[in-house]
């Protein structure tokens, strides 16, 4: 069973260890996650004829995203895993979103890269850039430029928070943003066009002409695939499997510090000088 509550979409999926979805629930009720998560889990479990004792692992979307939202899945999933003595698989929400885009494109695969951007307020976005693998290359393979079959998206960097402008500039090799890792700058030249997935309710700032995305998709149009993506990633073996005491320290991927903590850091730094 896998769940995610980090965005405005609540997703719960129940499936088998080969990544096949058996039952999924998607809810997009504003401020509804806190009420609907556990009933959705119960419904997906019952619908698929899965008993709690049948569970082998619990996939938990760990964000980044809405702080309050993401904590619901993390707290619920940790408690369930503890009570059932099963493993927890933490799944970055942006990875699940990239997987949704990949599933949506199917054979068509509009681009060779996927950029996920989630609204982090103040013109910033949480996100990551993915390449759609050619042939199931391992970690060492560059995966780019090959002409084999499309494989699942592979994240090219750590999940980060950047200004939306910087994310978009990153796509155009000519004007790379300052804080974009060197390895990624100019990489655009060697790749095909990028599919951008975002959850901004306002239109994105005008896309740089040289960016030429293959498509710009709102998360809303893809989020129906969240249960399947979560089940696939939980079964993928690409993420840590936490059991026993290792479950306790699991917390959401916040990326941004709490403002009060950040301010305290600044003050202390100022004093020490």
């Amino acid at each position: 069973m896998a769940m995610d509550t980090a965005t405005d979409t609540l997703g719960v999926g129940v499936g088998s260890s080969d990544g096949m979805l058996a039952s999924g629930v998607v809810q997009r009720v504003p401020r509804g996650h806190s009420r609907l998560l556990q009933p959705s889990i119960a419904f997906a479990m019952e619908s698929s004829g899965t008993g709690m004792q049948d569970l082998e692992r619990i996939g938990i979307g760990v964000g980044p995203g809405s702080y309050t939202g993401v904590r619901m899945a993390v707290a619920t999933g940790k408690a369930m895993a503890q009570a059932l003595s099963v493993a927890v698989v933490p799944i970055p929400t942006v990875d699940a979103i990239a997987e949704c885009a990949y599933l949506a494109m199917g054979e068509a695969q509009l681009g060779s890269r996927i950029l996920v951007m989630l609204n982090a307020r103040r013109s910033r976005a949480y996100g990551a850039l993915y390449e759609i693998g050619r042939g199931q290359g391992g970690e060492g393979s560059s995966g780019a430029g090959g002409s084999g079959e499309a494989g699942p998206p592979r994240r090219l960097e750590e999940i980060a928070v950047r200004r939306v402008d910087d994310w978009l500039r990153q796509l155009s090799g000519s004007r790379a943003a300052e804080d974009v890792p060197q390895a990624l700058r100019g990489a655009a030249a060697g790749f095909g066009p990028t599919v951008i997935v975002h959850d901004f309710s306002i239109p994105l700032p005008s896309l740089d002409q040289t960016t030429q995305p293959a498509a710009v998709l709102n998360w809303r149009t893809l989020s129906g695939l969240l249960p399947e993506a979560l089940v696939r990633l939980t079964a993928s073996g690409h993420y840590p499997t936490l059991t026993g005491d290792a479950i306790h320290p699991l917390e959401p991927m916040y990326v941004l510090p709490v403002e009060a903590e950040a301010n305290l850091g600044v003050t202390e730094g100022g004093r020490s000088q």
Binding site: M52, T68, R71, A79, A83
Partner: peptide, 16 residues
Amino acid sequence: GSLLVGVSAAKGYAIS
């Protein structure tokens, strides 16, 4: 936010 952590966990225990 604090209440939601406890309520979510409690519901996790109850459902499992």
